[in-house]
Design a protein around this nucleic acid. Structure first.
Length: 497
RNA sequence: GCCCCCAUCGUCUAGAGGCCUAGGACGCCGCCCUUUCAAGGCGGAGAUCACCGGUUCGAAUCCGGUUGGGGGUACCA
């Protein structure tokens, strides 16, 4: 059944998709899906100096990548734009802001302000010196027609200021209950249209939310203090005030508001590092919300059914990368084989292009490796940490070829004996189950510890002390390469002796 | 400075007056499994529920104050 609940995410294309924006988008999306409402995406691009098409692309692509879809706005169903309230880009809606500003001016709910940046600056310094909170002086609030004409004759441009009425503005916030703020603390009449005619955020957000019939404004806590301005504007324009819900912020590990300086904030960076959309969505959803049960791994479809705004936390949540990595491992382990391989391929290809490995493995090669790599991946990119030795050359290092409990001479005899056993092994049965018994027999015959011999062989064929199970590794390497690496290790050890 | 908000293990959280000698998860530490590394299983340390006062037979849960933290204070969004 269709609902008249309408929510939106209104990103500003002044930077790449930020984790905070993604999380707010997710909560709006989940709320809309849960209640059968409509989710809208609107681009707030009125900061022309900082907005770019590339950032816009990054934001839309990033949200889609996460699996978040919207019903109206740019990029719906592959279209440039779709929805009954188009356009969904603020720079294309300038007429409506101008009309709304005219209405406010006509009602004397707003007035033209001719103050220069210098005057405003001086005011601010003066109030600062007097230890007063910054606020507009009201210099242009009651200009006579003559005074106005004089300023215009001077060639001054006029910004439009909204008259802030005295009193208390309050609302019933869906996550923090009743909030009330005295308008005396708003800093005086505020600018809604710049001197150059472009509208400001506080104004456009209200005009658009009203025009697009937004019923619930779900946004970050940083907007709590701005909400009275918005409510005043809704009222002055004669619009119904939407319901507000302010989400807790995502914090840096030190507890401050998440920032690029202290944290990795771009969703694209997480994608590039091999985090899965499932893990990211799962993690974001549980940052500030919980189902009230002891479940902690949950997919998008389930979240859509379970999400509830009143279970949202009030306090900010610190970003915990270790927990994200754990969740990522959980999701990697749950992916179907072909899906995992398809997601791994771009990472091995990128590693090859970057020279981290010499060649990128083929699809079926990766598929065959899955059983031994799957539970060892914390990120998709870590595939090269786990089995990168398969795709790059190896230079034996005599110093690392000797296991802890052995000396160089023992390592040399051990590796030589192991090599001979493996070389004598029937090439047709070069399989993990077949290779293990003869080497175990060798260990038995010589009175060694299996772990020591295996470690020496492991270092010789992989160059790493931590790898997937040795016999799987020998099989993945193939007989020729395994023997060649053993030969090289033996030679290096002999040369060093 | 002023305004607003918040406050349970290091972190994310469960908890909506008696079920709490506060539960789960990440991380950490042991043990098991084991050729290393993971994964998995089992166990452990870790929170006098920020503090102080109330209300109540009874408070992590309600009220007030204090402290601490965060956000906001633009012709940015």
């Amino acid at each position: 059944m269709p609902s008249d609940i309408r929510v939106r995410i209104a990103p500003s294309p002044t930077g790449p998709l930020h984790i905070g924006t993604a999380r707010t988008a997710l909560f709006n999306y989940l709320f809309a899906r849960r209640v059968g409402g409509t989710f809208i995406l609107r681009l707030e691009d009125t900061d022309v100096a900082r907005s770019t098409a590339a950032f816009e692309r990054d934001i839309l692509d990033g949200l889609h990548w996460l699996g978040i879809t919207w019903d109206e706005g740019p990029g719906v169903a592959g279209l440039e734009e779709a929805g009954p309230y188009a356009p969904y880009r603020q720079m294309l809606r300038l007429d409506s802001y101008a009309a709304a500003a005219e209405r406010l001016l006509a009602d004397d709910a707003a007035y033209r302000c001719y103050c220069t940046a210098e005057e405003l600056d001086a005011d601010r310094r003066e109030r600062e010196a007097a230890k007063l909170p910054p606020a507009y002086s009201g210099r242009c609030a009651n200009l006579t027609p003559g005074e106005r004409a004089a300023r215009e004759a001077e060639g001054r441009t006029a910004a439009v200021r909204f008259r802030v009425r005295k009193g208390v503005v309050g609302w019933n916030d869906l996550v923090r209950d009743r909030v009330e703020i005295d308008t005396a603390n708003l800093g005086g009449d505020f600018v809604i249209v710049r001197g150059d005619g472009t509208p400001l955020y506080h104004f456009t957000v209200v005009v658009d939310d009203a025009a697009m019939q937004i019923s619930h404004v779900i946004r970050g806590e940083e907007h709590v203090s701005n909400t009275p301005k918005h409510i005043l504007l809704f009222e002055a324009l004669g619009y119904e005030v939407p319901v507000f819900a302010h989400l807790p912020l995502i914090l840096n590990p030190d507890g401050s508001k998440m920032s690029k300086r202290k944290s990795q904030t771009a969703v694209a960076d997480y994608i590039a590092q091999g985090f899965t959309r499932e893990a990211l969505v799962n993690y974001f959803a549980f940052l500030g919300w919980s189902p009230g049960t002891e479940e902690d791994v949950m997919d998008l479809a389930t979240l859509e059914q379970r999400f509830e705004l009143d279970k949202v936390q009030k306090g900010g949540a610190r970003f915990d990368r270790e927990r994200l990595e754990w969740l990522n491992g959980q999701w990697i382990r749950r992916l179907a084989d072909d899906d995992l391989v398809a997601r791994l391929l771009p990472f091995t290809e990128a590693a090859a292009a970057a020279g981290v490995i010499d060649r990128a493995p083929a699809e079926d090669e990766l598929t065959a490796l899955l059983p031994m790599v799957r539970e060892r991946l914390s990120t998709l990119a870590s595939i090269t940490d786990v089995v990168g030795f398969l795709w790059r050359g190896l230079t034996p290092d005599p110093a690392t070829l000797v296991p802890k409990r052995w000396d160089a001479a023992t390592a040399l005899t051990g590796l030589t004996a192991a090599r001979d056993v493996l070389a004598a092994h029937d090439p047709v049965t070069w399989e993990a189950d077949e290779l293990e018994p003869p080497l175990r027999a060798l260990v038995e015959a010589r009175g060694w510890k299996a772990g020591d011999l295996f470690m020496a062989v492991r270092m010789a064929v992989t160059g790493q002390a931590a790898t997937p199970p040795l016999f799987d590794v020998l099989v993945a390497l193939g007989r020729e390469r395994a023997l060649a690496r053993l030969d090289a290790a033996i030679a290096a050890l002999a040369a060093a002796a």
